Simulated assay, not measured.
Amino acid sequence: MHKYNTITVGTDGSASSLMAVRTAASLARAYDAHLVIVCAYYNTTGSLLNSPSAEYSTLPVVSDSRAEEYLAQAQAVAEEEKATNVTAAALSGSPVQMLIDAVEKYDADLLVVGNRGVNTLSGRVFGNIPTGVARKANVDVMIVDTSSQAND
């Protein structure tokens, strides 16, 4: 039987990202896996327009304190789903690169993200996080349908 040992999921505090966290936490519980919740943020000292991966930096979290707030919300969701081995990480940088870095750092074998931006014109033209991680990840990627949270 195939088993995931470490699952990484991204959150930006949106309702759709929390749906992805809920899915990842459920999987972590089912597989008895380590769950790593990541929130990428930008230091306010740099320009968002000049970020290395600007095409993937739509609506970024701009402070570490805000990232910590979003991680606390996500951890509460993970607890509701009975995930027991949870790590929260606020990482400074572009969301796509921070998710890929977290996969490597924590030796994850599954990356979970919501599908926010995948079916939008701007997401198709300028890029979006789910597509970016699917292109760059060297592990399984699960893109959770969050269309029921389209108005977040």
Rank of each mutant, 00 (worst) to 15 (best):
M1V: 11
H2F: 14
Y4T: 02
V9Y: 03
A15L: 10
A20M: 06
R22F: 00
A24T: 10
A24E: 05
A24M: 09
A25H: 06
A28M: 05
R29W: 04
Y31R: 02
H34Y: 10
H34K: 15
L35Q: 05
I37V: 14
I37M: 04
V38C: 01
C39L: 01
Y42W: 11
N43Q: 03
N43F: 06
T45L: 07
T45R: 04
P52Y: 11
P52H: 12
A54I: 15
A54P: 00
E55S: 14
S57N: 15
T58L: 05
V61Y: 08
S63C: 06
D64G: 01
R66L: 13
A67C: 07
A67D: 06
A67V: 12
E68Q: 12
E69K: 12
Y70C: 05
L71K: 04
L71E: 03
A72K: 14
A78D: 10
A78F: 13
E81W: 03
K82V: 03
A83P: 04
A83H: 08
A83V: 09
T84S: 15
A88I: 12
A89C: 02
L91G: 00
G93V: 09
P95G: 11
L99S: 08
L99W: 12
A102M: 01
A102S: 14
V103K: 03
V103E: 11
E104L: 01
D107M: 00
A108Q: 04
L110E: 11
L111H: 02
V113S: 07
G114Y: 06
G114I: 02
N115T: 11
N115C: 10
R116Y: 03
L121R: 08
S122F: 13
R124S: 13
R124K: 15
R124E: 10
F126Y: 15
N128D: 06
T131A: 13
G132Y: 13
G132S: 08
V133W: 11
V133R: 07
V133H: 10
A134K: 12
K136G: 08
A137K: 09
V141L: 04
V144H: 07
D145T: 05
D145H: 02
